[in-house]
């Protein structure tokens, strides 16, 4: 950089045709952003360990206490759900991470840099959703298969295991990963809408954990008609082999949950476009 040289007139720099912001490039950028934060790596690791490890742990405990289990207990062992139950914790970790992928940007001011680099804004949201959901889905699918297979290997000690070809088994393995991933998408949208980590996580906990309790204390006739529509009941059915008879079918409920997800993402997109950053 020459400081002493006299200016040779205004600098002109027209971007070349290949110098432009594209969705693929924004996706690459979001990929870098995701993996270069320590908190992301820890959250993903936690979710993976929970999904892959908690089920087999439960199976191991049940098998080691086999001799002291009552007949009733032995008969109610549910090898599919017990090997996959880790999704409850995995979902929580993914939800918090989903909120923070966007609120972390708002709270540090990074969002301004992101939006100045991609001023159309929506590509940032699409890229974030795509990167976060793909990573989550791949990790959770792998973790769910590991959890299921390891769990069955342990259940085999007392021959209460099932094969992946058993009714509901494959659907539940894939369902656990899908439900956790969709919850992550919901939380990215929530975070975009509220822009604050605490607010986003509170909303998630409120809707997925508190709301079901509130509905449960309503008169049962009313509660029963509301229950199937609650997001956690609608979406969670896919992640469970044993479904509450008073709810939608596994895929039907998940379709409803997908509808909620799409609606929230649409709201987040509108707000992101319209609001001052």
């Amino acid at each position: 950089m020459s400081i002493t040289a006299a200016p040779a007139g205004p600098m002109v720099r027209n971007p070349r045709a290949d110098e432009r912001v594209t969705l693929v490039r924004v996706i690459r950028s979001e990929w870098t952003k995701l993996w270069t934060l320590r908190s992301t790596r820890w959250s993903l690791l936690l979710a993976f360990v929970a999904q892959a490890g908690l089920g087999p742990l439960v199976a191991a405990i049940q098998m080691s206490r086999w001799s002291s289990l009552s007949l009733q207990d032995r008969l109610t062992i549910n090898p599919i759900d017990h090997s996959l139950g880790g999704w409850h914790l995995a979902q929580l970790a993914i939800a918090i991470l989903g909120v923070m992928t966007i609120t972390g940007e708002y709270q540090t001011g990074m969002i301004r840099a992101s939006l100045m680099a991609a001023p159309k804004r929506l590509p940032v949201l699409w890229a974030k959703l795509l990167v976060f959901c793909s990573v989550t889905l791949v990790l959770m699918l792998a973790a769910a298969f590991i959890g299921f297979l390891a769990g069955q290997a342990i259940f085999a000690q007392h021959h209460v295991n099932v094969a992946l070809s058993a009714p509901h088994a494959l659907r539940t393995v894939i369902g656990a990963a899908l439900y956790t991933t969709a919850t992550g998408a919901v939380c990215v949208a929530l975070g975009t809408a509220v822009r604050r980590t605490a607010g986003g996580i509170s909303l998630f906990v409120g809707v997925f954990y508190v709301l079901p309790f509130m509905v449960a204390i309503l008169p049962s006739s009313l509660a029963n008609s509301i229950h199937p529509y609650l997001p956690n009941y609608a979406g969670g059915g896919l992640a469970q082999a044993l479904i509450d008879p008073n709810s939608f079918s596994a895929w039907g409920g998940f379709a409803l949950f997908g509808g909620y997800t799409v609606a929230l993402i649409a709201l987040a997109a509108v707000l992101l476009r319209r609001r001052d950053a």
Partner: peptide, 9 residues
């Protein structure tokens, strides 16, 4: 105002 995520290098 700063426009950088504090957790990233």
């Amino acid at each position: 105002a700063r426009a950088v995520h504090t957790g990233r290098s």
